[in-house]
Design a protein around this nucleic acid. Structure first.
Length: 288
DNA sequence: GACAGTGTTTAATT
DNA sequence: CAATTAAACACTGT
């Protein structure tokens, strides 16, 4: 579920539902969601760190959450924590815990809020007190919605021969884009996904920077007003090219293509995304 | 049953 | 050695 816009949406959701409240109890339905360090896996989590999280939150005001890229975090009396949503993490307000609820936040006169994460790639982990900002940014490039971000910034960070699509997924280059929004950004910028990252021209850097900002702003606004999930079951696919192989390109009507780059599904419109196609690396079209 | 899936780390390979 | 790619994680839905 979560790329930058969805994580920002989760941050606002928590502030709306728990802001100003005192946390009475942290329900540990699955202690493995609390980890010793950020970005560790469920097998490393456990009640030892779960108790630490309970002690950090219970009986205290719900903290202000900060975000950088896809990471969330807070720093308060009980200590600093990082929170990341992995592939399927989300927050749900409900009286009873939904399926795959891993943790519950209970406050007086508020609907309980549950951290739900079927795949358990997401979690909570303590980070050094006073070092929240450093922990949020560690190993990450700029967040396009929070940091200075323009064609020059992009040009300086996009180097090497790997495809631009793969570079956009690298959080150390830019923080916040995931597979869906990277695919949509390239469509907006009319850029071929297989252009080597270091081979972009100045006008392409500009188009890409504009597309990244536009896509993120668009997605945040849409999530805010519609509570739209990334790919809600039953709902039609809301994206221009993501997951649309074989269907008509919204701009040209020609079929959307798909290939795999760095192990991730990549969709694009060959007729529309012509910028850089002269420099595109060899790639495999697997659409029929 | 096989396969793909919104993320990220680690191992293996080039 | 640096740059890339594959595998692993954990589980659901088609």
């Amino acid at each position: 579920m979560p790329e930058l816009p969805e994580v920002e949406s989760a941050r606002r959701f928590l502030a709306t539902h728990l802001g100003g409240a005192t946390i009475q109890r942290v329900g540990l339905l699955d202690a493995a969601v609390v980890r010793p360090r950020p970005s560790t896996r469920a097998s490393e989590g456990g009640p030892v760190w779960g108790v630490g999280l309970q002690r950090a939150l219970e009986g205290r005001p719900f903290p202000t959450l900060h975000r950088h890229g896809k990471r969330l975090g807070w720093s308060a009396e009980g200590g600093a924590y990082l929170l990341w949503l992995g592939m399927s993490g989300r927050f749900v307000a409900a009286e009873a815990p939904p399926a795959h609820a891993r943790l519950g936040l209970l406050a007086e006169d508020r609907t309980p809020v549950w951290y739900v994460d079927p795949r358990r790639f997401g979690g909570f982990a303590p980070c050094p007190a006073g070092g929240l900002d450093a922990a949020l940014r560690e190993g990450h490039g700029p967040d396009p919605t929070l940091d200075p971000f323009d064609a020059e910034v992009l040009a300086a960070r996009l180097t090497g021969r790997r495809p631009i699509k793969v570079a956009l997924l690298d959080q150390s280059v830019i923080a916040g884009l995931g597979n869906i929004h990277a695919v949509e950004v390239l469509f907006r910028a009319r850029l071929h996904p297989a252009v080597p990252a270091g081979a972009l021209r100045p006008e392409e850097h500009r188009a890409l920077a504009d597309a990244i900002r536009a896509q993120l702003d668009h997605a945040i606004a849409e999530l805010g007003e519609a509570e739209l999930a990334l790919v809600t079951e039953g709902a039609p696919n809301p994206f221009q090219v993501y997951g649309k192989e074989g269907s008509a390109c919204p701009r040209t009507g020609s079929p959307i293509a798909r290939c795999v780059m760095a192990g991730r599904g990549t969709w694009w419109s060959p007729a529309w995304q012509t910028a850089g196609s002269d420099r595109a690396l060899a790639f495999i079209e697997e659409n029929d």
